[in-house]
Design a protein around this nucleic acid. Sequence first.
DNA 1: GTCTATAATTTGATAGAC
DNA 2: GTCTATCAAATTATAGAC
Lengths: 205, 205
Amino acid sequence: MVKVKKDQSTEEKILAAAKKVFVRSGMTGARMQDIADEAGINKAMLHYYFRNKEKLFEVIFREAAAKLFPKLNLVFESDLSLFEKIERFTVQYIDVILENPYLPLFVLNEIHRDPEAFLTHIWQRENMPRPEKFLDQIEREIKKGNIKRISPLQLLLNLISLCIFPFMARPMFQIHLGVDDLQFRNLMQQRKTEVPRFIIDAIRK
Amino acid sequence: MVKVKKDQSTEEKILAAAKKVFVRSGMTGARMQDIADEAGINKAMLHYYFRNKEKLFEVIFREAAAKLFPKLNLVFESDLSLFEKIERFTVQYIDVILENPYLPLFVLNEIHRDPEAFLTHIWQRENMPRPEKFLDQIEREIKKGNIKRISPLQLLLNLISLCIFPFMARPMFQIHLGVDDLQFRNLMQQRKTEVPRFIIDAIRK
DNA sequence: GTCTATAATTTGATAGAC
DNA sequence: GTCTATCAAATTATAGAC
């Protein structure tokens, strides 16, 4: 399947094709030939522009990992109230993933496959989640008696789980519950308000 | 790395080794040589017992997918109260996954990589989750006024997300929060009571 | 059933013409 | 920069002795 936008440079065509193929098939499952076909160019060009498969993969993976986290720190480290942070986090995260629904599974899978590579030359300090301020804020709200006692870490886990997991399990839902693409999107849109409500109901006194 | 239990038959040794290697590296990343090494036998034996890589993979994947779902229907279709079902589901699910922490990522990833194979010759009717009764029960409890209004499907999504996702994101938590293996296990043990409490607090009127 | 040796195939990578 | 043709390495699969 070849879809080429004529105004794209060759390098851009390669990157777009590589992203598509790597995200679908993973580093080990992706074939250089598939990427070349998808980009509508020759296989040799991939090596001309990116030297080898690993280098090309690193570019794609770094970009993917960066996209999965970046805006979150803006929310985590802002001066919003706890409830407002929960709401904004949910909306922003679900919106990001709606545009890249297969990114979470791809990224988590590649981290699992090769955690060393992730640590040594993929991960950037700036992108690392820094949830400390958020965790402290939860602790303070508990001490002030504004919300129920709960382990801040568990609450953070809950928040992230509720936002991301449905996207990773998408194929299963579509199979078992007969949910089509449009219905799935609607479900996720609905979650942007459902999840914060659910969490706040759970912790409010 | 070769660990061999002497009382295992060759076939059992192969299956145990294949499970380990496939779950770690995925279908495309796993090498027949790795599996042979892990089993402490010769590569040719793999083909003698299972003909080819694909057949061997299917056996492993089928078993893995079955393990990820089976007991759930016992809970879903039982006559317990809604709150009891939520509690039992959580405990049983987390216990199963604690013994096979990498199964969810493996299974969801392989389904995503090749959904056709999953549908055509992996999936068994008996293992399919049948959440209808559970969804109906939620609907009834809402109508009776026992719990808050919530989309039954969203509630089911929440329940499953809260149980499974932390295992899939495990490498990230370990990296970012400096959580070691023991601490992670303790967190998940804690979740067996935290998650039902969280959910029930969220939906109770 | 189990092994060694080897064939067959796939696939990443390069050489060299244009 | 781009292509065709080809190589080299990795990996699945089989043949055949024991």
